[in-house]
């Protein structure tokens, strides 16, 4: 590269091992990775497009320092092997003033094949790698991410992408051959009509005119049928696009349903929380009893002792009263009330003395209050209060429950906010409007189909008429005419074979791409349940699960599978391609997580004979080399050293430094 982008003066990159294997070019953002890819594309096609497909102005490609030194010259030289032959491209531009037009005027291109300069180099390069298929060989991580969006972008972008894919697969070769043969057949027919006129004779002239008229009518019909088919194709693409949009809206409907579910869950949780709060308030109302509990406990104990003491005294007094009665009776009857022994004077005196003592004892016991229900009642009241005392575990349990409900409600609210933000700006009427539009377009498509069929029938009738006429003309014994008729019939036969080959080859290639994409996908997929890929007519992709469920894009895009699926398709296109070229990937793993990134890295060596990875240290980390198992043949690093010197290229040392 000479003065290209951040590369001041001459810089050379050499891919080792004859270019075969994996080649790493490391550099952070803004160090000059993308400029290397752009330099190659500029060398090939003389222009570079940015990520939005806009052409980058030549004045933006010149190195700053060169510009400051008034050197208005930049260029690229590429050495490569094509079909086993060494080739070299040298593209330069030099301007007298720093002006886009001047650079375009000052551009020169040389192509050497096997050491010899080749005429018409632009056309030769386009044959080697058509510009519209280069997007599958020189791409960046953004393209992987946007692949499906490209399909949905609009009908034009979709048609362009579809054409590019079919071109990679080689379908247009059959189309070109068919069209070439059609052109040749027309030439033969014109020649035949011309000769017939020359042969003279009014009958012959009349036949020739009639034949020419029929041919003109057939040409017009072909044109009309082509236009109608084109209209129908545009309409069918629009229908397919609208149906995909409608499928995406299924997601919106699911979100709306989820929103209702969340709101209901929040309501249920709020109810449960309120119930627990009421329970807690009731408990707190009884909390004063906890404060009184120690005092009540002491009082109960005291009441129990006093009650027991009173009961003991009462029992003693009752026994003393009984004893006094017995003594009184014994004294009165002079006979012992317990054993019936007759008592003498001495014994009677002893009994009287004992009676006096007993009376004194009874008097003493009477001074203590007799047992009453007051003690019992007080004790019961306090015991009941003690039963109401809260345990700290009960309160903690309720607080824990309330916290759980709070957490659940907060979580649901957060999800609700998320769902609401996704639903913002969604036009609720759009699905029904789209359905109506699809129905209207399908009706129109049906009408066009009918019209095409009618025109084809008309063409069939004309063809019958013409072949009848051809037979008449064929009967005219003219050698040259006979020869031309044979050539026309022969050309027609060949044309029909190519016509049938177009759809057969397209279907077979699509099946091969689908099969290869699935093989790649299985090596780098994130979930084992994702079984295989299916490619639709527009080259959009669906994942089929092991249970044979078809997952549309809206159902798997959230799982980060999008880049993996696009990479599988691009890998398959490269494997099935009619064009052999190296693959340059600019920051391809930027959005992949570690596991995905490792799987893709392990797969890469199988993807193409030559792969150049332009990576940042964030996506290709220290130790990642192990996944490429000795396939790395070149390892370079880039560094932007400042505006004056620009970017430099140097071999990477151990540890990725």
């Amino acid at each position: 590269m000479l003065n290209f982008g951040p590369y001041y003066r001459n810089h050379e990159i050499s891919f080792q091992n004859d270019g075969l294997g994996i080649h790493l070019i490391r550099g952070g953002n803004g160090q000059g990775k993308t400029s290397i890819q752009r330099a190659i594309l500029w060398g090939l096609y003389g222009e570079v497009k940015d990520r939005r497909g806009e052409t980058i102005r030549p004045t933006s490609l010149l190195n700053h320092t060169a510009f400051n030194e008034d050197i208005y010259q930049f260029g690229v030289q590429i050495d490569f092997i094509h079909d086993g032959v060494n080739c070299r491209i040298i593209r330069r531009t030099q301007a007298i003033r720093h002006h886009d037009k001047k650079y375009e005027e000052g551009m020169t291109l040389e192509l050497y094949v096997d050491g010899r300069i080749v005429p018409e180099p632009e056309r030769q390069i386009q044959r080697m790698l058509p510009p519209d298929v280069s997007r599958f060989y020189f791409f960046d991580g953004e393209m992987l991410r946007d692949y499906e969006e490209l399909l949905e972008d609009d009908s034009r972008a979709m048609a362009l992408l579809k054409d590019s894919i079919e071109r990679v697969l080689g379908v247009p070769y059959f189309k070109m051959a068919r069209n070439d043969l059609e052109g040749i057949k027309r030439k033969f027919e014109r020649e035949r009509a011309r000769i017939m006129r020359q042969l003279g004779g009014s009958d012959l002239e009349e036949l020739a005119e009639l034949q020419q008229m029929l041919q003109d009518e057939l040409d017009d019909l072909d044109k009309t049928i082509n236009e109608l088919e084109k209209q129908k194709e545009i309409l069918d693409n629009k229908i397919a696009e609208d149906k995909r949009k409608l499928a995406d809206m299924k997601e919106v409907r699911e979100l709306a349903t989820r929103r209702l579910e969340i709101e209901k869950d929040i309501e249920i949780n709020e109810g449960k929380k309120d119930k627990k709060i009421a329970e807690r308030n009731t408990m707190i109302e009884k909390l004063y009893k906890n404060v009184l509990a120690p005092i009540a406990s002491t009082l109960i104990e005291k009441f129990e002792i006093q009650s027991q003491q009173a009961l003991d005294m009462y029992n003693q007094k009752q026994r003393a009263l009984e004893h006094a009665d017995k003594l009184k009776k014994g004294i009165k009857e002079s006979k012992c009330s317990y054993c019936g022994t007759v008592l003498d004077e001495k014994k009677l005196k002893e009994l009287e003395a004992e009676l006096e003592e007993t009376k004194i004892r009874i008097e003493e016991l009477t001074q203590i209050p007799e047992p009453n229900l007051e003690y019992e009642h007080s004790k019961n009241t306090l015991t009941k209060m003690m039963d109401d005392v809260l345990s700290s575990e009960d309160l903690e349990e309720i607080d824990k429950k309330i916290n759980e409900y709070d957490y659940e409600i907060a979580k649901l609210n957060s999800e609700l906010e998320n769902v609401k933000s996704k639903l913002e700006g969604v036009d609720a009427d759009e699905p029904s409007r789209l359905e109506l539009q699809i129905r209207t377009n399908e009706k129109e498509s049906g009408r066009l189909s009918g019209k095409i069929e009618a025109k084809k029938e008309e063409k069939l009738k004309l063809l019958e008429e013409k072949s009848e006429l051809d037979r008449k003309i064929d009967a005219i014994p003219q050698d040259q005419l006979k020869k031309l008729n044979k050539r026309i019939i022969f050309t027609d036969s060949i044309m029909r074979i190519f016509e049938r080959a177009i759809s057969t080859f397209r279907e077979e290639q699509k099946a091969a791409v689908e099969k290869t994409a699935t093989e790649i996908f299985r090596e780098i997929r994130s979930k084992e349940e994702f079984d295989r890929l299916k490619i639709n007519d527009q080259y959009g992709l669906s994942i089929i699960t092991v249970h044979n469920t078809i997952l549309d894009r809206s159902e798997w895009r959230s799982s980060g599978e999008e880049q993996i699926v696009a990479l599988s398709l691009i890998g398959a296109l490269n494997k099935c391609a009619q064009v052999k070229a190296p693959i340059f990937m600019d920051t391809p793993f930027g959005r992949l997580d570690v596991t995905h990134g490792e799987r893709v890295l392990k797969y890469l060596p199988k993807m193409s004979d030559q792969i150049v990875l332009l990576v940042t240290d964030r996506e290709f980390r220290e130790g990642d080399e192990i996944h490429l198992a000795g396939k790395i043949k070149t390892d370079l690093s880039l560094k932007y050293t400042g505006e004056k010197e620009g970017s430099i290229i140097y071999p990477t040392t151990a540890g990725g430094e």
Binding site: N179, D180, I494
Partner: peptide, 22 residues
């Protein structure tokens, strides 16, 4: 014979067909 190619290729195909027929 099955020729297998933005055309004026047509001349070359025509030559082949002419050689085959006539």
């Amino acid at each position: 014979l099955l020729i297998l190619v933005d055309r004026g290729c047509q001349e070359q195909i025509m030559t082949i067909i002419n050689q085959r027929v006539g």
